[in-house]
Design a binder for these strands. Sequence first.
DNA 1: TCTTATTTTATAACCATTCCTATTTAGAAG
DNA 2: CTTCTAAATAGGAATGGTTATAAAATAAGA
Lengths: 151, 151
Amino acid sequence: MNFQKLIKEFKKKGYKLTPQRRLILEILSKEKHISAEEIFERIKQSQPNVSFGTVYRNLNILLELGLINQLDFKDGRTRFELNKSHHHHLICLDCGVAFEIQVCPFNSEIFRAADSQDFSIENHSFEIYGYCRNCKYNKTKKLDGKEEQQS
Amino acid sequence: MNFQKLIKEFKKKGYKLTPQRRLILEILSKEKHISAEEIFERIKQSQPNVSFGTVYRNLNILLELGLINQLDFKDGRTRFELNKSHHHHLICLDCGVAFEIQVCPFNSEIFRAADSQDFSIENHSFEIYGYCRNCKYNKTKKLDGKEEQQS
DNA sequence: TCTTATTTTATAACCATTCCTATTTAGAAG
DNA sequence: CTTCTAAATAGGAATGGTTATAAAATAAGA
Ligand SMILES: [Mn+2]
Ligand SMILES: [Mn+2]
Ligand SMILES: [Zn+2]
Ligand SMILES: [Zn+2]
């Protein structure tokens, strides 16, 4: 789903295409894993009077339309990305970097478990938390430092 | 890990055992998927002057010690449960009920994906969102109602 | 162009969680 | 049992992400 297609999809649902909305879609097309505040800051560059309400309201509309997904990087702010191909993430608990992994672990065994409860699946989240190469390295260095202080 | 063992583990780490802490552990031993506010309300029954700060501070300590886990039911509040056997959840987006499923989809393919990024795994979340039998039924009824109004 | 329902702005409110600090206390030591 | 003190709590204020409100602006169809 490219930018033009997104616009079309959005208008087809009966929503008006405002400059603010065009910008939100444009920003989401360019950057993945972006927070509401980051979107807000970027829109301000060309629309200085934009309000946070506009950003959140439209993100919620895009969520309802299923055009974007919501992610939890465990850093206190929700992140958003265009709903392109289904994937999951390796998320660094230190620096917040997120690697995308294309392998999805959802399998028939899981499906049967849900089915046995007569549970109707809408979506699933699978996120792996840990430390990226850099932060793992820095962590080790910091621990070494502590040990040196103690001795 | 039963209640007595929890207490022991907690003291072994050098923390003082206050009545508030004993209660928090007792409540967590009895109820799973409980929010900070629910814990707060229950403690108030025997310790009317307990503060929210105490609840949150101790939940964070228990998280650090790895004695409890944090869950996101997408209802705006964090939930907690004792770190017993590893499991995942089917979470109803309407009523918030959570069914536990014992099957974990983490596999060697995922592990290799992380390894190829030199990513050090701490933990993972896998939650399935949807509608339980009751809410699915109520949803259908509501939709039928709408259709009748339109005609 | 005119009209109107939709959208935005600006600001206040909300609410889960964290922070601050004076006071209290668990547990160690005597 | 009493004393001592580092650790913990109570009470309340602050924070920060998100949502609600209502007056003003505007997209888009007639
Ligand atoms: Mn992604
Ligand atoms: Mn559980
Ligand atoms: Zn998946
Ligand atoms: Zn698992």
